[in-house]
């Protein structure tokens, strides 16, 4: 009774007006989490930088300045204002490479999430809706995938498919996909026996309609949160594969690959290792903060009043 009373309190106090109202409420809960807002700001900046990379970057990412090999950052002794974050072993501007690298990282994240989300949702909905042997078959396969350390499995897949950015993305998508499948299955199973689903069934809805139009839209909130967290995971794994030399191939300015080619200079020129590492850290942190904020805003259990 209390729950109902308080919920009613919230609901009736909010002005009506469809989507905008829903967004206002969403933003209210999201913005209560300061970290999430900071994450969103950083991420937005990152996206803008990636989109406008050719305009923002001072140099081309592949241009080699033969007179400035391993130049230190501008604020250090011997640094040049032309190369704000220094240059790498073949004289390429670090800042420009990082800026163009953002494009790759975000692209990787996006593609991987789209792949794994779609396949995970399809498998999860089928498993959760039909149960029985379909469920057993799908979930056991997912369990097998989850049983391997994810990086190792991705590495094996890339070894089979051949190194390259696209194959790396496919491998990561496959590795991340069971999480989506499990989550979708759990949500579908919870929703499946709700009365509105039975009502739609009584109205004569087909299996496909029940799955796609009735149940799925009500399972999206946890999936969106998981998608955000997977986004950062994908960037991290792509960097790891790049670092191991099976992801993006040089001279692609991908952050992980940059780290790999620079590791021999770690003592002599720490900036060539530090900045790509920092870029990965900041991006992943920002996206994870967004994910946490989304979870708070979506999860009714954490909602206060």
């Amino acid at each position: 009774m209390t729950d109902q009373t308080t919920a009613e309190a919230t609901a009736s106090a909010i002005p009506t007006g469809g989507r905008q109202r829903a967004f206002t409420e969403f933003w209210h809960y999201y913005s209560m989490n300061t970290g999430a807002v900071i994450g969103l700001v950083v991420f937005t900046a990152l996206v803008l930088v990636a989109i406008f990379a050719p305009l923002v970057a001072p140099h081309s990412p592949d241009e080699q300045f033969r007179d400035a090999l391993l130049a230190p950052p501008a604020w250090q002794e011997g640094g040049r204002s032309m190369f704000l974050l220094g240059t790498d072993a073949v004289g390429r501007d670090m800042l420009s490479r990082l800026i163009f690298g953002a494009r790759f990282s975000l692209f990787i994240g996006l593609v991987v999430v789209v792949f794994s989300l779609t396949s995970g949702i399809i498998l999860g909905v089928l498993a959760g809706y039909f149960r029985g042997w379909v469920d057993t078959l799908i979930m056991r396969i997912m369990d097998v995938i989850l049983a391997f350390p994810s990086l190792l499995l991705a590495l094996v897949l890339v070894a089979i498919l051949g190194p390259g950015l696209f194959n790396a993305m496919l491998a990561i998508a496959l590795v991340l996909q069971p999480h989506f499948a499990r989550l979708t299955r759990a949500a579908v199973m919870a929703e499946k026996n709700r009365e509105y689903v039975i009502s739609a069934k009584v109205a004569g809805a087909s299996h496909l309609r029940l799955m796609v139009k009735t149940i799925l839209p009500n399972c999206m909130a946890p999936l969106i949160v998981q998608a955000t967290l997977s986004f950062s995971n994908a960037i991290l794994e792509a960097a790891a594969l790049g670092f191991l030399g099976v992801g993006a191939q040089p001279p692609t300015p991908e952050w992980g690959t940059m780290l790999a080619t620079a590791r021999e200079f770690i003592l002599r020129a720490p900036w060539v290792v530090t900045f790509p590492g920092l870029a990965i850290l900041i991006t992943v942190l920002a996206i994870n903060l967004i994910g946490d904020g989304l979870r708070d805003a979506f999860d009714p259990k954490l909602k206060r009043s």
Partner: peptide, 11 residues
């Protein structure tokens, strides 16, 4: 009163 997304609500 409860503090809600749309301002205080008097319960």
């Amino acid at each position: 009163s409860f503090d809600t997304a749309a301002g205080p609500f008097m319960a």
